[in-house]
Write a protein that binds this DNA or RNA. Sequence first.
DNA 1: GGGCTCCTGGAT
DNA 2: ATCCAGGAGCCC
Length: 303
Amino acid sequence: MPELPEVETVKRQLKNSLKGNVIRDVSIYNDKMIKVGAGKISNIKRGSKKDSLRFIKAVRGKKILDVKRRGKFLIIELSGGLNLMIHLRMSGQLIYLEAHSLGRPIFLSLAQTAVRQRLPTKHTHVEFSFKNGSRLFYNDTRQFGHIRLANEAQLREVFKGLGLGPEPLGLTLEDFKILLNSRPEKRIKDLLLDQKTIAGIGNIYADESLFMAGIMPARQARTLTAEEITRLHSAIQDVLRKAIKFGGSSLEYFLMTNGSAGKFSEQHLVYGKNKSPCPNCGEILSAKKIGSRTATFCLVCQV
DNA sequence: GGGCTCCTGGAT
DNA sequence: ATCCAGGAGCCC
């Protein structure tokens, strides 16, 4: 699920609630989710009892110094020069429970109530408890995500290996043009999804920004006119900023850290709306695979 | 480029 | 029973 706006939402909320907290203990229910050090994340061989024990021993007693985001990665900085580098992949959630149930706000959304009553769920793989009595749950139905423990050098090594492209928010038009020129033969949607080209955009925001800019997802980057590049650049900034304002998009899995849904999904123009009328012209929207991902678009509004 | 893989679960 | 899903690494 989570793309830049969802991870940014989680980052802001965790920063607010976790900063200064001291980790009392960690429970790891699924070793697969844990990685220690700078090694690559492999589908086949992931996590081990031994790594989990090292992880728990290392983070016990550490204080949360800051929470940051890079692309779709969340970075929780701990005392002692350690970092938790988290990727939620398709279905990861980070849910934060405050210490005192009596101090809960009176009006909880249905989603919040449901989440609070059930935790930990059968999809809770890691649970942090803090000295102030609060808890943080890592839930991940599909188990594609991970939590990596890394010191500063290992963190740098991992990011170097990933070779993430620039952040889209704040990227200048000039730099965006340079990015597109660097891979002119690629389809524009493939470029937007490639984290080495630009970091943080996923299937939702690629489709939404291409629709907003009036560009077909399968167009080769080199065929975009100057006007189209300008429109796409501002569409990306607009859609990401607006999605962050709405707390991201909740579809099947994504939730904010308080367990409530991100509301930007209600604002989607084309993503997930194949065979519905185009919000701009009324034409029935189309979908096809671009690479391995479904692209949804309007045959009239996008050229 | 595309295909397969890691998983679970909802829709059809 | 089969297909599909906010991701991404590895393999041709």
